[in-house]
Amino acid sequence: MQVIVRENNVDQALRVLKKKMQREGVFREMKRRRSYEKPSEKKTREKSDAIRRARKLARKQAIREGLIVVPPKRERVVSKRMQTLPATTAQPTNEV
């Protein structure tokens, strides 16, 4: 995995790296390997993962064939910091 640092912007490069690692499933794998997993637990986890993947594929196939309606996308929640306030023009007052 490779991330290019542009203009000494290490913070942005770290964010990009974390996003790539998240997509690849590195954090999930690290969490899973943190402790020993019994063979029976591994078997049940893999089985449930396979069922989840099969359901997802079946749902996508049904959507493509028009058997079920595409669920509406949720709106992104914008944090208060990201919201822009309306621009106000301050009028100078000439009070004495």
Rank of each mutant, 00 (worst) to 15 (best):
Glu95Pro: 00
Lys43Asn: 06
Arg23Ser: 07
Lys43Met: 14
Glu75Ser: 10
Asn8Val: 10
Ile63Glu: 09
Thr44Ala: 13
Thr84Trp: 03
Gly66Trp: 05
Ala58His: 09
Asn9Ser: 04
Pro86Tyr: 01
Asn9Asp: 15
Arg59Phe: 13
Ala87Leu: 10
Leu85Phe: 03
Val3Ile: 15
Pro71Ile: 02
Pro39Ser: 03
Pro92Phe: 08
Pro86Gly: 00
Glu37Phe: 06
Lys38Tyr: 07
Gln83Trp: 04
Gly66Val: 07
Pro86His: 01
Ala62Thr: 02
Gln22Val: 12
Met21Gly: 02
Val10Ile: 13
Lys42Tyr: 09
Glu37Val: 15
Arg45Glu: 03
Lys31Leu: 07
Ser35Glu: 14
Met30Gln: 14
Tyr36Trp: 10
Pro71Tyr: 05
Arg34His: 11
Lys80Asn: 14
Lys80Met: 09
Tyr36Ile: 06
Gly66Cys: 06
Arg74Thr: 05
Lys31Ser: 04
Arg74His: 07
Gly66Asn: 04
Ile4His: 03
Glu65Thr: 08
Asp11Glu: 11
Val96Met: 06
Gln61Ser: 12
Leu57Phe: 05
Arg23Leu: 08
Ser40Phe: 11
Ser79Glu: 07
Arg6His: 09
Leu14Gly: 00
Thr84Arg: 13
Lys56Gln: 13
Met30Trp: 10
Ile68Ala: 03
Arg23Lys: 13
Lys31Thr: 08
Asn8Cys: 10
Gly25Asp: 01
Gln61Ile: 09
Gln22Gly: 02
Glu7Cys: 05
Ala62Tyr: 05
Ser40Trp: 12
Lys42Cys: 02
Ala13Asp: 01
Lys47Val: 03
Ser79Val: 10
Thr44Ser: 15
Arg55Met: 14
Glu65Met: 12
Tyr36Arg: 08
Val78Ser: 01
Arg6Thr: 13
Lys19Cys: 04
Arg81Trp: 10
Arg45Cys: 01
Arg64Met: 07
Ile4Lys: 10
Val69Gln: 13
Glu29Lys: 13
Ile4Asp: 07
Arg74Met: 07
Met21Ala: 14
Gln22Ala: 08
Thr89Leu: 02
Gln61Gly: 05
Arg81Lys: 09
Arg32Glu: 11
Gln12Phe: 12
Lys43Val: 08
Ala54Tyr: 07
Ala90Thr: 11
Arg32Ala: 10
Leu85Trp: 05
Ala62Glu: 10
Val10Trp: 05
Arg53Trp: 04
Glu46Asn: 13
Val78Arg: 02
Arg76Thr: 08
Ala62Lys: 15
Val78Tyr: 03
Met30Asp: 08
Ala87Pro: 01
Lys60Val: 04
Asp49Ser: 09
Val16His: 04
